[in-house]
Simulated assay, not measured.
Amino acid sequence: MRGSNHLIGILNFLTFLLSIPILGGGIWLSGRANSTDCMRFLQWPLIVIGVTIMVVSLAGFAGACYRSTFLMGLYLFCMFFVIAALIGFIIFAYAVTDKGSGKPVTNRAYLEYSLQDYSGWLKDRVASDSYWGKISSCIRDSKACKKIAVTVNGVPETEIMFDSRKLNPIQSGCCKPPTDCGYTYVNETYWTSGGGVVGINQDCSLWNNDQDQLCYLCSSCKAGVLASLRHSWRKVSVINIIILILLVISYVIACAAFRNNKRIDNNEPYGEAQMTKSQPSRFQL
């Protein structure tokens, strides 16, 4: 039974290490939110999950190393709720990021993003006026669109070169007008209508060559943010699934270790307790 204590100690040490990138991601978002108030509603779930897993893993690690019945009991009690919360978070994360993806465009390497392809809680949250003002301000302050410009041997890229680039969702949705609007390329963030905008896309009238406006009010920009969040949340979910598997294994082994620790605390060696229960006394008539 000592092996169970050693094994649960190793598993909890691994989950402790895995909680560090989750907590670090939440702190990183928190640091950015302090200056730009960017996507504040995403930072706290990561911080809470990271801290909880870290504390519970330390309790399980200490309980296994010192064979503390109290710490192991506290570990099992908290672990039940952590496992339930992780399962709920994973299901929620996959549910709110189930729909939506970029669409290919003819003769373009980058994808186009449409808000109509997304639905549910995450879309309503991002697209709401109260949050979108903060998110668009974050994108503007991060200078994501200024970074889109590139030069080749000191010469600005041509339209053909731009069309062959693989832009990320925010660059595609926020830094240029939608392709179906028919705008004429001047540079990466400056486009002219050429006498009239083609297409019925409402974003066509929202595009502005002012570098502080661009397409930040466009639905395509909101869709680009949703695509980026979808990618990030799926990555977090993969890490959470790995942690969940380790926690479930640890929980099962911890139950055995907890029973073993209780027997030791009660001065009941496992083998003698079993012999006493299974064999009658030789002096019994």
Results as ranks from 00 to 15, higher is better:
residue 17 L to R: 11
residue 255 C to N: 11
residue 211 Q to N: 10
residue 32 R to H: 11
residue 31 G to R: 08
residue 152 V to I: 12
residue 105 V to D: 02
residue 14 L to F: 15
residue 37 D to T: 10
residue 277 K to V: 03
residue 101 S to C: 06
residue 156 P to I: 02
residue 5 N to M: 00
residue 142 S to M: 13
residue 61 F to D: 01
residue 114 S to Q: 10
residue 157 E to P: 06
residue 65 C to Y: 14
residue 176 K to F: 04
residue 226 L to G: 02
residue 252 V to T: 11
residue 119 S to K: 14
residue 126 V to E: 08
residue 130 S to L: 14
residue 134 K to H: 11
residue 165 R to W: 06
residue 16 F to A: 12
residue 102 G to M: 07
residue 12 N to L: 06
residue 256 A to N: 13
residue 102 G to N: 04
residue 188 E to P: 01
residue 49 I to E: 03
residue 188 E to Y: 10
residue 274 Q to T: 07
residue 280 P to A: 09
residue 220 S to H: 08
residue 224 G to V: 01
residue 63 G to S: 05
residue 70 F to W: 09
residue 213 Q to R: 13
residue 225 V to F: 14
residue 138 C to G: 14
residue 54 M to V: 00
residue 146 K to M: 11
residue 57 S to R: 01
residue 109 A to H: 14
residue 238 V to Y: 15
residue 5 N to V: 00
residue 28 W to Y: 14
residue 242 I to Y: 07
residue 280 P to H: 12
residue 122 L to E: 04
residue 209 N to K: 04
residue 131 Y to S: 11
residue 140 R to K: 11
residue 182 G to I: 05
residue 156 P to V: 00
residue 113 Y to P: 07
residue 33 A to H: 08
residue 8 I to Q: 10
residue 121 W to C: 03
residue 266 N to C: 08
residue 185 Y to S: 01
residue 31 G to W: 08
residue 254 A to G: 11
residue 206 L to M: 13
residue 243 I to K: 00
residue 117 D to P: 02
residue 35 S to N: 14
residue 169 P to A: 04
residue 183 Y to C: 00
residue 8 I to Y: 04
residue 21 P to T: 10
residue 15 T to Y: 09
residue 238 V to S: 09
residue 144 A to D: 06
residue 28 W to N: 08
residue 145 C to F: 03
residue 169 P to G: 03
residue 254 A to Y: 06
residue 128 S to Q: 02
residue 88 G to N: 04
residue 113 Y to C: 05
residue 46 L to K: 00
residue 200 I to W: 07
residue 55 V to P: 01
residue 92 F to N: 12
residue 195 G to Y: 09
residue 70 F to T: 13
residue 234 R to A: 03
residue 283 F to Y: 13
residue 130 S to C: 04
residue 17 L to I: 13
residue 233 W to D: 02
residue 177 P to R: 08
residue 31 G to C: 09
residue 239 I to L: 15
residue 146 K to F: 12
residue 18 L to W: 13
residue 133 G to Y: 09
residue 217 L to M: 12
residue 244 L to S: 03
residue 210 D to E: 09
residue 64 A to S: 15
residue 48 V to M: 07
residue 142 S to V: 01
residue 275 M to T: 13
residue 109 A to T: 15
residue 175 C to R: 11
residue 36 T to M: 10
residue 78 C to K: 00
residue 81 F to K: 06
residue 80 F to I: 12
residue 275 M to I: 13
residue 247 L to T: 06
residue 243 I to N: 00
residue 133 G to C: 05
residue 35 S to F: 10
residue 229 L to W: 04
residue 212 D to Q: 10
residue 273 A to F: 09
residue 97 T to H: 05
residue 72 M to E: 01
residue 219 S to Y: 05
residue 119 S to E: 15
residue 46 L to V: 00
residue 179 T to S: 10
residue 56 V to E: 02
residue 94 Y to C: 10
residue 25 G to E: 03
residue 187 N to Q: 11
residue 89 F to P: 00
residue 264 I to T: 11
residue 245 I to G: 03
residue 123 K to P: 02
residue 273 A to K: 12
residue 265 D to V: 10
